[in-house]
C-alpha cells in the first residue's frame, strides 16, 4: 500500500514537472518511479485462454467502464477485449505500445465522446465485437 501511494505521488510529481514549457523530463525521477513500482506480468501467462472470450452483446457494454479501461489500461488493449475483439488484440496493443500511442489515444477519445454524448454518438458501437485493429477508420 505504501509503495502504491508513493508511486502515485511520484507519477503526479513527474506529470506536473514535465510541463509544456519544459521539453525535457527528469530521467532520474522516472527511474526512481520504476524502481519503486511493483513488478507484475501484463497479462496472465496462459495467453491462449484469451481465445475463449465470448462475443458480447451491446447491452452488456457499459460506456463508463469501457472508457475507464481504455484510459487506464488502453495501452494493453484491455478495453478492446471488454468490447469483444479478436483474441490476439492484446498482443497488438501491448507490443506496439498501444499503436504508438495513437490507437490508444483515439480509442479513448471516441469512447469519451460517447460517454458525454457529443457529436454523432454511438462511437462505442464501432468497438463492439470488432476484429479490426483500427475501428475508427
Amino acid at each position: 500500500m505504501k509503495k502504491l501511494v508513493l508511486s502515485i505521488i511520484a507519477v503526479i510529481a513527474i506529470a506536473f514537472s514535465a510541463n509544456a514549457a519544459n521539453y525535457t523530463v527528469d530521467n532520474s525521477a522516472i527511474d526512481n518511479l520504476i524502481e519503486n513500482a511493483e513488478e507484475v506480468f501484463t497479462l496472465d501467462i496462459a495467453a491462449p485462454a484469451a481465445a475463449n472470450l465470448p462475443t458480447v452483446s451491446q447491452k452488456e457494454i457499459n460506456t463508463t467502464t469501457a472508457f475507464l479501461l481504455s484510459w487506464l489500461l488502453g495501452g494493453f488493449g484491455v478495453h478492446r477485449h471488454y468490447c469483444g475483439t479478436a483474441p490476439w488484440m492484446w498482443a497488438v496493443y501491448t507490443f506496439t505500445g498501444g499503436g504508438l500511442g495513437i490507437l490508444w489515444s483515439v480509442d479513448t477519445l471516441l469512447i469519451f465522446l460517447d460517454l458525454i454524448k457529443v457529436g454523432e454518438g454511438n462511437y462505442l458501437n464501432k468497438f463492439i465485437n470488432n476484429q479490426k485493429i483500427i475501428v475508427w477508420v
Binding site: 502515485i8 513527474i14 495501452g75 505500445g97
Partner: peptide, 19 residues
C-alpha cells in the same frame, strides 16, 4: 536511446512508459 511517454488519465494518476 531513451524515450519517455506520459499519458494523462484521471486527475490522480497517469501512465508512464520508459523505452
Amino acid at each position: 536511446l531513451r524515450i519517455t511517454d506520459i499519458s494523462y488519465g484521471s486527475d490522480r494518476d497517469s501512465t508512464v512508459v520508459r523505452t
